[in-house]
Amino acid sequence: MPSETPQAEVGPTGCPHRSGPHSAKGSLEKGSPEDKEAKEPLWIRPDAPSRCTWQLGRPASESPHHHTAPAKSPKILPDILKKIGDTPMVRINKIGKKFGLKCELLAKCEFFNAGGSVKDRISLRMIEDAERDGTLKPGDTIIEPTSGNTGIGLALAAAVRGYRCIIVMPEKMSSEKVDVLRALGAEIVRTPTNARFDSPESHVGVAWRLKNEIPNSHILDQYRNASNPLAHYDTTADEILQQCDGKLDMLVASVGTGGTITGIARKLKEKCPGCRIIGVDPEGSILAEPEELNQTEQTTYEVEGIGYDFIPTVLDRTVVDKWFKSNDEEAFTFARMLIAQEGLLCGGSAGSTVAVAVKAAQELQEGQRCVVILPDSVRNYMTKFLSDRWMLQKGFLKEEDLTEKKPWWWHLRVQELGLSAPLTVLPTITCGHTIEILREKGFDQAPVVDEAGVILGMVTLGNMLSSLLAGKVQPSDQVGKVIYKQFKQIRLTDTLGRLSHILEMDHFALVV
């Protein structure tokens, strides 16, 4: 994948999101292997301009796509893939009243899908469409860049269908997702969380590099694949309309690839034109409109599966009536509230959605109805927002919020430890010299600072030695090549209790 991002070429006709291997024109390309080798690009942008032909009021008969309808489940399912879809609609009884809503608040519980998330729908649909058009064949390999849930859905379907599955996901995604993927037989590649989507090191860039190296491999490409919004247009939206008897006044959905909100909203605009569509985008993402909503100094966020630093091709923002931004604290607070007060075992993005819903639905009156999409299960986040310690460490809970008995030293300040200034190293000294210094002084790690004293990161003896043994660096290389740029900081005025929580999850903390 090139470091400079080429513009994806656009073909003359058809839909841009065809499933299957992508040609340089962004659509299915038939021909000899030699032709494909000559024409197939190194990668295709996940934010390529959409060429979708959908228009409100256009006859369904003019759609270029294969459409399906929700099917009634048999008493005995032939395999677990038949437990994807037909998820329950559940009334939220307490939270709406707590925040003064007059309307009825309903939750579409997508964590009841077989793999635990709304992404099971698009995973199965992308595979079925690729099999139907002859792209996927027995023994082929599926590769997908994902925040985890699409990966789980694909790995689940691949396990049943017999495909090899490789999932490329950023490091910030939970260990629970990784464990589930491994249990399903998927191979996992992790990428830096802070890598831009168009960087060769991003999950998108690495996935395309693997595709170019592995024979008979395919990126189904949830960011561009029409099967993504079509899955929701054909099934999720129809289920909502049936469950609500066609009567709903507002739908609120958090947005990642945009397939969920695009597919549902398009069908609702056709069948229930008075329904307002509300999009939820986390602070630090750029999906919301108008652009002024996205202006923030924050560039990272903890909530998973929603928000991006690019506009995915499948996201149709014209069908969203209003956007709201959400933050991590309210997302996790509301997710825990949904679990504790409503018994809905949902993930953090569901918290984002409901946090926005109780604001947006203030305009609705008694007798009206708001539906929220709860995308995934708490299963993926047992060591994250479900953990009091994690919430404390991230600053989303305060010590006084917890009532468990603490040891005698818990409320003492870090400054009472009488710490001395640490050994520091410059980023320009060599790895070999740094190892000598650390061994001589008896230290395992040291902060790396520039000549102005600005902290650049941390270097550890173990990481340097393993990097040297693996051949990633040489003793003569500058130590700046092996620094940890993500590390926890703590102030002298913070409590030892807070430091204790940090050290339970990290090997060190830097006192500043």
Rank of each mutant, 00 (worst) to 15 (best):
H17M: 08
E34C: 06
I122M: 07
P49A: 10
R45N: 09
S61P: 12
D133S: 05
N216E: 08
Q7M: 04
M89D: 05
N212S: 15
S27T: 15
G246C: 02
M169Q: 04
E62N: 12
S123L: 07
T53A: 08
R224H: 12
Y223E: 04
P46V: 06
C52D: 02
S32H: 10
P88Y: 06
I122N: 00
E131Q: 13
V118N: 06
G116C: 12
L156Q: 01
K247P: 07
L106D: 03
E128P: 08
C15I: 12
K172E: 06
L28C: 09
E128T: 09
K247D: 01
K108A: 00
G256K: 01
E29H: 13
A114L: 06
I95F: 13
G115A: 12
N228L: 00
R276Q: 04
P88F: 03
E213N: 12
N225F: 00
P200A: 08
Q222H: 02
E144V: 07
P49H: 08
P192K: 06
E187D: 09
K269I: 04
A265V: 13
A8D: 09
Y163R: 04
I80R: 06
R276H: 12
E213I: 08
Q243Y: 07
K25C: 15
P21K: 10
P273G: 09
G258Q: 01
I92K: 05
P46H: 05
W43A: 11
S254K: 09
D129K: 08
G100A: 09
K25V: 06
P59M: 09
N212F: 09
S174D: 01
S217K: 05
A207K: 00
D47P: 05
C109P: 07
G100C: 07
G31Y: 06
G26L: 13
A155M: 09
A114P: 04
D238E: 11
A159C: 01
V204I: 03
D133C: 05
W54H: 06
I219T: 07
A48T: 14
L105Y: 03
C52A: 03
R182P: 05
R224E: 11
I167R: 07
I261S: 01
I188M: 07
S202I: 05
H203L: 05
S27Q: 11
R224D: 04
F197G: 05
T146E: 04
D234H: 03
M126I: 11
G14F: 09
M126F: 04
G256L: 00
